[in-house]
């Protein structure tokens, strides 16, 4: 009976040790995941700032006086492309 009791105790202790080690490992994994996600959040935020920067730049360009002044040139170019695109079809 005594032997049985000791082995049971040992088993419990071992089980507890195993649990503690597992929990420790799990905690480590969670912390690493947490740090990785934190890093990812910052990477995404930095990308979002970049997108905002270029959107603002595009807005500034398209709302500038020079862009508006040169709008007819761009329209003309687009029209000439369309016309050129149609001409070969007509001749063929």
């Amino acid at each position: 009976m005594k032997v049985e009791a000791v082995s049971e105790e040992t088993f419990e202790r071992e089980a507890q040790t195993t649990d503690a080690a597992t929990l420790q490992r799990r905690l480590q994994e969670v912390l690493e995941d947490n740090a990785r996600l934190w890093d990812e959040v910052h990477r995404l935020r930095a990308e979002r700032r970049e997108i905002q920067y270029y959107e603002k730049l595009a807005d500034q360009i398209t709302s500038s006086a020079s862009w508006k002044l040169t709008a007819p040139l761009r329209s003309g170019k687009a029209i000439s492309h369309k016309v050129k695109g149609k001409l070969p079809r007509r001749s063929s």
Binding site: W38, V41, H42, R43, R45, A46, R49
Partner: peptide, 12 residues
């Protein structure tokens, strides 16, 4: 490391 201007993007 990522770089941010100002602290608006600070989280934790």
């Amino acid at each position: 490391a990522e770089v941010f201007v100002g602290l608006d993007d600070f989280d934790s």
